[in-house]
Amino acid sequence: MITEKDFVFTTITNAIEKGNFQWSAPSNIALVKYWGKKDQQIPANPSISFTLNNCKTITKLAFAKKHFDKLSVTNNRFSFDLLFEGKPKEDFKPKIQKFFERIEKYCPFLRDYHFTIDTENTFPHSSGIASSASGMAALAMNIMSLEKALSRNFGTEMTEDFFYQKASFLARLGSGSACRSVKGSVVVWGNHAEIEGSSDLFGVEFPAKIHENFKNYQDTILLVDKGEKQVSSTVGHDLMHNHPFAEQRFAQAHDNLAKIKIVLETGNLDEFIKIVESEALTLHAMMMTSLPYFILMKPNTLEIINTIWRFRNETNIPVCFTLDAGANVHILYPENVREHVLQLIKGELVGYCQNGNYICDSIGTGAIQIL
């Protein structure tokens, strides 16, 4: 079994002076939700997600070796500039600083370089889509490219499996769900008895063959509220520690993951809909029954849900919804009913979106190296 110690970088090398890498990493949408965590970003329950294709972060990491001298105390600190869409973004820096502090024991070479992190999203910044998963995954991929180069310079060739496992491991320490944005169209994160190779430390590709019904599955994101979340994910997860229904919820997640595993293999869309919608509503039920309690859905969120239910009952078209910890609605459906669902969106649902905004996406394959 892989442990945290396996991810500690021990090679000592000063051979690489400067360079740069660039990766894109996608967002993801959980089907079985992760809500509640332990220390070090360990999930309280396992989760499974679709990796998206179009909603992604593109990050370029330039690095230059710092040269130490006896008079310089600052050289031993993390040194980085952060650009968002080519412009300095100071308010993002504390999160990167915290990320570097968390991963330093696994990547001690971070203190040896000055980094310029230049990042951008393919989706609007204030669209209400969480960019922490795609952003941290893209940064982790770049850091692993540097580690791979350092290892090769020392005469050690890193395996592809290790590269992606550690990238997912590092991404998790930046943002839990980021570990599901590294590799694979369907990713499991968290130990589960029926998922071979599953781990709390990193995400793994779904180990079984996925039914044709789920190939190129569609996700249209209806942007109900593009404002900043009223409750941070960190606060929300922490409220599960003393939640009266926490243990039942964690057991339910294990049970639903076992069920959806069978669904993804057999292609049973009716069961898929039941599990996915139940998970979305359970996530919000846990928020509404915590102390303090909060409601992230908006009236238009409920209007969209009710319209989807009515449409599905009238047409038997297998369309369903899921939700993140916010008001926006992800509409999931097979590619072969795309035109019918887009007609529904354009004809009825767009009016419930802020400024009529929605994003069409589909299932993807994970991070891609650009440079």
Score class of each variant (00 low, 15 high):
107 C>T: 14
124 P>F: 06
351 G>S: 12
247 E>L: 13
311 F>V: 10
76 N>W: 08
130 A>Y: 05
307 T>Y: 08
54 N>A: 15
36 G>W: 01
276 V>I: 08
126 S>K: 12
245 F>V: 02
137 A>W: 03
357 N>P: 02
364 G>R: 00
105 K>E: 15
51 T>R: 01
363 I>C: 12
109 F>D: 03
193 A>N: 14
17 E>T: 12
334 P>F: 05
353 C>N: 07
256 N>H: 10
205 E>G: 11
181 S>L: 01
26 P>A: 08
153 N>C: 14
271 E>F: 03
117 I>S: 04
93 K>N: 05
119 T>E: 08
15 A>C: 12
206 F>K: 06
169 F>R: 00
198 S>Y: 01
125 H>V: 15
163 F>R: 01
130 A>F: 02
310 R>A: 11
248 Q>W: 09
155 G>A: 08
203 G>Q: 03
342 L>R: 14
41 Q>S: 12
147 E>C: 08
347 G>L: 10
217 Y>I: 14
260 I>L: 07
332 L>A: 05
283 L>C: 04
304 I>R: 03
363 I>A: 09
371 L>A: 13
3 T>R: 11
49 S>Q: 01
301 T>N: 11
47 S>W: 02
321 F>C: 05
91 D>C: 09
221 I>Q: 03
267 G>M: 02
332 L>F: 01
358 Y>W: 08
297 M>V: 08
19 G>Y: 07
67 H>L: 13
282 T>Y: 13
340 H>T: 09
339 E>P: 00
362 S>L: 11
353 C>H: 00
202 F>Q: 05
3 T>H: 12
195 I>E: 03
89 K>M: 09
154 F>I: 01
99 F>W: 07
166 K>P: 04
324 D>W: 07
308 I>Q: 01
356 G>R: 10
293 Y>S: 15
330 H>Y: 13
53 N>S: 15
352 Y>F: 15
342 L>F: 12
124 P>E: 12
129 I>L: 14
93 K>Y: 04
12 I>G: 00
174 G>E: 00
370 I>N: 12
40 Q>K: 15
182 V>S: 04
7 F>G: 08
255 D>Y: 14
3 T>C: 13
133 A>F: 07
147 E>S: 12
291 L>H: 14
113 Y>K: 03
263 V>C: 11
141 M>V: 05
149 A>R: 06
178 A>V: 07
26 P>Y: 04
246 A>L: 09
344 L>A: 02
179 C>P: 07
344 L>S: 04
177 S>R: 02
82 L>T: 03
146 L>W: 01
268 N>R: 09
